[in-house]
Design a protein around this nucleic acid. Sequence first.
DNA 1: CGTGTTATTGACTTCATTCAAATTAGGTGG
DNA 2: CCACCTAATTTGAATGAAGTCAATAACACG
Lengths: 228, 228
Amino acid sequence: MQTAFATAGNAIASAAVRRAYSQPIPRAPESPALGSTRTFAKGAEIFAEGDRAAFLYKVASGAVRTSKLLSDGRRQIDAFHLPGDIFGIEAGDEHRFSAEALGETTVIAYRRWRLENLAANDSVATRQVVTATMRALERAQSHILLLGRKNAMERIAAFLLDLAGRISENGQVDLPMSRIDIADYLGLTIETVSRSLTQLERQGTIEVPAHRRSIVLRDTGALQRLAD
Amino acid sequence: MQTAFATAGNAIASAAVRRAYSQPIPRAPESPALGSTRTFAKGAEIFAEGDRAAFLYKVASGAVRTSKLLSDGRRQIDAFHLPGDIFGIEAGDEHRFSAEALGETTVIAYRRWRLENLAANDSVATRQVVTATMRALERAQSHILLLGRKNAMERIAAFLLDLAGRISENGQVDLPMSRIDIADYLGLTIETVSRSLTQLERQGTIEVPAHRRSIVLRDTGALQRLAD
DNA sequence: CGTGTTATTGACTTCATTCAAATTAGGTGG
DNA sequence: CCACCTAATTTGAATGAAGTCAATAACACG
């Protein structure tokens, strides 16, 4: 078996678990029409696979992972969502992923638009949802190439560059996620992720400070070449 | 929008014609407003990665693969498109994939909608494009799970069931694609695909007639269990 | 400072790939 | 209809990249 993220079982069960253990702290919405702000603790579930998709979300601060589980516990993380990103868009009326906060995270929940209204309505919000959907599709498609045809080192390099492009501050990337999350995103194991990072560090391509939760990109050119 | 003469001088058509082995055979569109019909020979290129995305397409008959290449020639097939499927939707103005006919294939080309119009406009066509985009996203996301976390046998089983759900006639699936295409879709090699099929046949789960281009699903339950 | 969690490292195994060869299908021209 | 040819597929044997199992190390936090 691969990296089993040991959350108990199926969608129904985890929906129940969510009610028990997650701590959504609803606050007064900044403006009713614009959605309501909610804060989640590290690891808290924002929604579960199979939950009714009544809202879509925009990350205000922190970070979110959306993932799917196989029956035996293998997990695949579909995407990481950073501030400004919209997630939870669905065509049907159920969430096909679960979403969890990677750290203390604040999101804005917007009441969901039915698909029909999406096409019918012209508004900034509508446009944003269509754009977010297209972006999600593009990301998913390039992730398919990564998972289908790239080796471990290429995956790590591509991941670091992608993240750097989204949240780097002068070449330093502060990872909002654990090695397990990285592994489950890249279709690898935590050990392989660790070994690849060590190898990149030995080559002088990156630098990993003591606390291990940030990475300095020393040679983005080399990463680019690796990533393809 | 689309006129009978629009096919003659556009960027896409000439880009396609430039390539050696594509043979688009423009015919009179069934209805000018609804797009123009084009037929492609087996292996012909409908559009290439980087081509200007002036049209989107619906498969009328036959089948199409959309794929990406890495610099060293590794290929990943993003999706197979069967009659009724829409492909070639882009947010930007370039195709990020190439598209090739899997056999003698007829498609209908629709002049592309700009993203802004998509959100602004309410029409059957708009709705179809939004729906097709959502469907593509859902497919891509479940393919990510397959590529990231499923083993060879699980991938083959899932592939056969998916295809059966789209084109089976009483349990028989006529494969429009070669083993290489299947391998490049599932992130495997042609040898592994062949071995997996052989094993499924030995188990009595499937049956592969002599010409090897169709497969009879004898035990979909077993496939379902394998596919997860 | 302990304690629990997360990450790294090492040794060994395994599943899928690679390399190589054999077999089969399907088209072509006699 | 058959012999021949080419491309596609299958099969076998050996290799290798990433996974598994196990132990250690490094943090983070109370």
